[in-house]
Amino acid sequence: MQLVKSGRIVEDRYVRIADDAPIPDGVAVIVSDARFLANAGALLQRVEPVGVLWPNNRPIEALAPYLGRLALVALAFPGFRDGRAYSQARILRERYGFGGELRATGQVLRDQFLFLLRAGFDSFEVSKEGDAAAFVGSTRRFDVFYQPTGDGRATAFRRRLGRPPQAVPAGTRAHAL
């Protein structure tokens, strides 16, 4: 498994802590949703950063009160066909303005990096051979986007405005609204 952040392969500074293990001092940790919700107050008092691994079948709205002090939210892709966490990511970023690290964990393929990026993820646990190294190339395949998302890329709808109208082919007329 390799971690890609801001387009580069990096060392993971977070340690994932099992529910029954003590939480070590001095390191950044990721805990489960259950443990986090049970001890949110104490956990968020820590000096070191705290992250939570949130399952894709639990409403993400429950995290809203803590987002300001959470350093990281890791969302789960139990299979590469299961796209629930794309919605969770957009809700975190676009509705609640979450500004911490948003990490994709589980099964993701390089063919999904761009979708993930556009949904607001900025770090990726990559398990498939060669995919981490292919990150930058895979996310630069397209430069036309049709949907507005929180990443702020201009949509084709917008970019067309203000351009001179296309020539109308001979023998036809354009639609008049």
């Binding site: 067309r160 109308v168 036809t172 639609h175």
Partner: peptide, 26 residues
């Protein structure tokens, strides 16, 4: 209710731009 007035709201200029791309026979 949370996204109604986001960037998804269709500007009349955008609709007009799409409509103008449709041509009809003379």
């Amino acid at each position: 209710a949370t996204i109604k007035d986001s960037a998804l709201a269709l500007d009349p200029a955008v609709i007009a731009d799409v409509a103008e791309r449709f041509t009809y026979p003379d």
